[in-house]
């Protein structure tokens, strides 16, 4: 194995130009992919942060009477993700409102009847992102006794839809980049192989198996993928440091944005994908070339 590794290094050296092109292509595509990932990971986290509260008001229909309260409360509590429920009677709601508005207006005192509905104040788990929250809200809204559910930043849901679409486009583009890198890897292998046709023929004549002939190509592919991946991630990290230190100095005090570099797991994943890419490009080309 070590011998194949040295052979592969020698191969890379003797085909410097082609191998460089492959490595640069892989690293650029990995750069694009990890840039997308970095962007979406952070945007996702920031948006989740905005919805951290998970507080929602469940307004009940006028027909609701307090005897129905335990049954309804337990029905809502049983739903996935509902962690806390507090009943807010219409009287308490009015009192709260008066308290908040104290001094600013006498309007509320003039009311003969309390126009506010009974309500539950609930808290929903948010650590799994936005989608589960929206699902619980929909579920609660479908109950007969519930008039409507008002929850933190409803506009966030709409923005999240947009974000999903945006993210999908990003990932499709990433896939495209990877595909291009893959094709370039595969065709470099083909070029290198053709440039070595006579060498391969000699190896065969002195008794080399196909495995022996292919091995250095595979190792080369793995090295290219691995090095390309690390290169892409390093470029991204350098860019991240440069850009982010600039931003955080000028705006750090204005907004608190929780921006982080890719997690170790994500970097590991990207690196594995990139290494696999190098290997797979080789595999497909050689399967075609050596039948």
């Amino acid at each position: 194995m070590i011998r194949y590794f040295y052979k592969a290094l020698a191969d890379i050296r003797s085909n410097r130009f082609l191998n460089l092109i492959t490595m640069v292509t892989i690293s650029l595509s990995i750069l694009m992919v990890s840039l997308c990932l970095l962007f979406f990971e952070n945007l996702g986290r920031i948006m989740d942060g905005w919805n951290q509260e998970g507080r929602a008001m469940v307004y009940l229909v006028p027909e609701f009477s307090t005897e129905m309260r335990p049954e309804l409360a337990s029905a809502i509590t049983q739903m996935d993700g509902v962690v806390q429920i507090t009943f807010v009677s219409k009287d308490r709601a009015l009192a709260r409102l008066k308290n908040q508005m104290a001094g600013s207006t006498r309007f509320l005192d003039t009311l003969e009847e309390n126009p506010l509905p009974h309500a539950f104040e609930i808290r929903i788990q948010t650590q799994n992102g936005f989608e589960p929250v929206a699902a619980v809200v929909r579920q609660i809204e479908s109950l007969d006794l519930v008039e409507s559910v008002e929850y933190g930043q409803k506009w966030l849901a709409r923005m999240l839809d947009l974000f999903q679409l945006f993210r999908l486009t990003g990932y499709v583009m990433c896939a495209l980049f990877l595909l291009i890198a893959f094709f370039i890897t595969a065709s470099t292998v083909r070029l290198v192989f053709h440039s070595r046709q006579s060498e391969v023929e000699i190896m065969r004549l002195v008794g080399a198996t196909d495995r022996f002939i292919k091995m250095p190509f595979y190792v080369t592919g793995l090295i290219q993928g691995a090095v390309g991946g690390i290169l892409g991630l390093l470029i991204l990290f350098a860019a991240y440091l440069a850009v982010w230190s600039g931003i955080s100095q000028s705006m750090g005090d204005l907004f608190h944005l929780d921006v982080r570099f890719l997690s170790v797991a994500a970097m590991g994943g990207i690196w594995v994908v990139s290494t696999f890419l190098g290997w797979f490009g080789c595999y497909l080309s050689l399967r075609q070339l050596l039948k």
């Binding site: 060498e199 000699i202 065969r204 004549l205 008794g207």
Partner: peptide, 18 residues
């Protein structure tokens, strides 16, 4: 076939050195 060829030592007319 590779195993058969290893039983031969070949000196080619055009050497066939890499």
């Amino acid at each position: 076939l590779p195993f058969l060829r290893r039983r031969f030592g070949m000196v080619f007319q055009d050497f066939k050195l890499i």
